[in-house]
Amino acid sequence: MIMSENHINILLTEEVLSLPNCQAFVEEPMVGGIVHFVGTVRNQTKGKTVERLDFEAYKPMAISEMTKIAQQALEKFGVTKIAMHHRIGVLEIGEIPVIIAISSPHRMAAFEACQYCIDTLKETVPIWKKEIFEDGEVWVSATP
């Protein structure tokens, strides 16, 4: 078991996310590279214009599930540090709902761990987004 407490930084917030804060958390003299994934709100889905997104979370469990994913990624890929920040509330087009930053001695592990973290977040973390259109709104992925 890796001592992960000082290696993981999880944030779930209604405030604007900060890429510099994520970067600063994962910086270490021993690392040779840092990979960031920055999710942004897209202006359309399946050809339909999206006006904004509204995110909500089951907060305590979202934080514990994000922590689990980061711990798994540390162990599985041997990366050095992980910051995983997610925003909730109403986000406009181009705003940032999620940032994942990962540092590692070697770049391949950081790329792989980053992909693992965002893919798993989308599968298991209890966060939901509603797409708001001009003429209505839809919970994303709720129905087939």
Binding site: A57, K122, S141, A142
Partner: peptide, 8 residues
């Protein structure tokens, strides 16, 4: 109740 999640 946890319907299909859609974070990120």
């Amino acid at each position: 109740l946890i319907p299909p999640v859609s974070g990120g």
